[in-house]
Simulated assay, not measured.
Amino acid sequence: MQRFWSSRWLAPATSLGLGLGLGAALTGRRLQPGPEEGAAAGGLLARLPVLPGAAAASLPAGGELAKYGLPGLSQLRSRESYVLCYDPRGRSALWVVERLSAAGLSGAPERAACAFREDDSVHEYHRATNADYRGSGFDRGHLAAAANHRWSQKAMGDTFYLSNVAPQNPHLNQNAWNNLEKYCRSLTKYNKNVYVCTGPLFLPRMEADGKMYVKYQVIGKSHVAVPTHFFKVLILEKPGGEIELRSYVMPNCPVDEKLPLERFLVPIESIERASGLLFVPNILKRTSNLKAITADGTGDCLSLQRSHRSLQ
């Protein structure tokens, strides 16, 4: 069976960066904190070793151009179980980062007590609602998975904000994607920490006229964007200090759950180019002992260092 994605779709033309990190550069703090969020020093944000953003833009904090406020900045949300960067245009997250550990997977929260709900820290013009998903044919697919955060009722409950959700094909959500989530949890048995970054992709494909187009469906009155694909980047901290990188892409369509997950491994550069995000430079600031796992099971750190150095 052939792979569902094509390398030509992972083209540099698609960029979802939307000025990641710009808000931090302007204010030095998180923007528009939700009513349930703690101080900037709290939540998962303070515990993350890296964030998947590009270098922050250098702009003055005030001045004549900002006298009436700037119309939009990257929107970070730091909650108990994850950090996300929200995309108000797509009504979902650009990326969500969570930390998995063996201890965090144990506990007895009641999933039945959790309910999908609007994120009232997002302006009503830009938030998804449950009504948008009703009758759409898509699942409310968690980006930070609920089962990853069994250590507290609140941590699990926070994953049910619709800002942590994207429209996902039901077969994918309940089968192959679920297998990938289970695999991520299994890695906590052999690694000190497992950091998982998940997000949507909107990839171009060639149409009959020979031109490349980015086309995607929207659902509901809020026009929630339906991703063409999803990515998941795993940053594994080994007991000996080595960092291992694994990166996956799955199409947002039915996928044979019997296919080995290795079939969906892609070079991290493909996700960086397609999403507008950067992972490797941020990781290399903290370690030189990085190995990226490829589809053939091998790892190569030197080529990663060279390719990113050439862009500086």
Rank of each mutant, 00 (worst) to 15 (best):
A57R: 14
L76G: 02
S92T: 15
L105I: 04
W95K: 02
V96N: 06
G90I: 00
G53A: 03
S78N: 13
Y82F: 15
L70K: 04
V97L: 12
L76Y: 02
A57G: 12
P88L: 07
L84N: 13
G104I: 03
A55R: 14
Y86L: 09
L105T: 02
S58N: 10
Y68D: 11
R77M: 06
G72Y: 12
P60K: 04
R91Q: 07
P71L: 08
R77S: 15
A61T: 11
D87S: 08
P60Q: 11
E98M: 04
S74C: 15
G62F: 04
S78E: 07
L70R: 10
L65I: 14
R79Q: 14
E98K: 05
L76A: 07
S92F: 05
P60H: 06
E80V: 15
A102G: 08
A56Q: 06
L100N: 00
E98S: 15
Q75F: 12
S101V: 11
L73S: 05
E98D: 14
A66F: 14
S106N: 06
L94Y: 12
E80W: 01
G104P: 01
C85S: 15
G62T: 06
S78H: 11
Q75N: 12
G69L: 02
P88H: 06
V97E: 08
L76K: 00
A61Y: 04
L105R: 01
L59D: 13
S74L: 03
A56T: 06
V96K: 01
G63F: 12
V83S: 10
Y86C: 12
A103L: 02
R99C: 15
G69Y: 03
L73I: 13
S101P: 00
A93L: 14
R79L: 14
A54D: 06
Y82K: 04
S101H: 01
S81R: 14
K67A: 14
A54V: 07
Q75M: 13
E64M: 08
A56I: 00
L59E: 13
G90V: 02
G90T: 07
L100W: 00
S74A: 15
G69K: 08
D87M: 07
R79W: 09
G62Q: 04
S78Y: 08
L76I: 14
V83P: 11
G104N: 05
S101A: 12
Y68A: 11
A57H: 06
V97T: 13
S101Y: 00
W95F: 02
A61E: 10
E98W: 01
C85D: 15
L84W: 13
L73W: 00
Y68I: 01
Q75G: 03
A103G: 05
L73H: 07
G69A: 01
Q75P: 02
Y68N: 14
L100C: 03
W95S: 07
G90E: 04
S92I: 03
R89S: 11
A57Q: 15
E98F: 01
V96W: 00
R91I: 06
W95Q: 04
A93V: 05
L73T: 08
Y82L: 09
Y82Q: 09
P60R: 10
A93Q: 05
A54M: 06
R99F: 03
L76M: 11
G72K: 14
G72L: 15
G72F: 12
G62N: 05
S92R: 11
A54L: 11
Q75S: 10
S106H: 11
